[in-house]
Each structure stands twice: as C-alpha cells, then as structure tokens.
C-alpha cells in the first residue's frame, strides 16, 4: 500500500466515514460521487455503526504473502446495523464457532505491514460481540 493511497482512505479505515444519498437515502461505503439508485450527486457524510452481523464468511488457509503468517484467518461480509455491508476479517474468535447471523463489533486492528520498515496498515476487523 502506497502512503498516499493509505492516507486517502484514513477516514474510512479509522472511523468508518461513509456517505448517504440525500435524495434516496442509500448508504455508500466508501463514499462515491454518484448514487447508483437515483443518480443523485448530493451526499451527506455519515459514520457507519460499529455493530453488525455476519452475512457470509470463510476461513482462509492460503493467503497472499503479506497475510500468510496470519493463517488460518476468517473473513466475512458483515451487515452493519445501519444496513451498510462491509468486508472484514473476524479476529479474537473461535474459528469453529462462526455462523451466519453471528453478532460482531468492529475494532481497529493492525491488518498488515509493508515489510519490516514500511508503514503499518491499520483498519477495522470484527470481533464477536
């Protein structure tokens, strides 16, 4: 992850900053310029809820090199209580006890690092609620 790219996404990664279409109310995370429901370009900034439930999940045994030391790790699509959906790892959990519908809460975690000397990539992960 290049530094400018990391920096641009800080509001999303650290505090779940999203946008809501003023016209039709649809939520977008990350923010985008045009609503895909009503094509409106007017949005307000909102912060997503940090609570939700698992919609679907898997446990990875094989990972890209940056994540390989973390295997096995679960990853899931999570529907937050404000109906936005995100993709995140599940951490601090018993990987044999995950289930669809399981309540989770988002926390900031260290997702990966750019080698030994590069930046640390922080972001959200879900933990069992």
């Amino acid at each position: 992850m290049s530094v400018p790219k990391y920096w641009r996404n800080i509001p999303q990664r650290y505090r779940l900053e999203a946008v809501k279409c003023i016209k039709c109310g649809k939520l977008f995370f990350p923010p985008r310029p045009v609503c895909n429901e009503c094509r409106s370009q007017e949005f307000e900034t909102v912060h997503l809820s940090d609570e939700g439930k698992i919609v679907t999940f898997t446990v990875l045994n094989s990972a890209p090199s940056k994540f390989s030391y973390q295997t096995p790790y679960p990853i899931a699509v999570i529907e937050l209580s404000d109906s936005a959906k995100i993709c995140a790892q599940i951490t601090d959990c018993d990987i044999d006890k995950l289930y669809i519908g399981m309540p989770v809460k988002l926390q900031m975690r260290k997702l990966s690092t750019e080698g030994d000397a590069g930046i640390i990539n922080y972001g959200y992960k879900a933990v069992p609620a």
């Binding site: 926390q107 975690r109 260290k110």
Partner: peptide, 9 residues
Amino acid sequence: AGMDEDTIT
C-alpha cells in the same frame, strides 16, 4: 496482545 494488536489499537 494478539497478532493484530499493538499499542495503537
């Protein structure tokens, strides 16, 4: 601390 935890998290 877990693998993904540090002073900041």
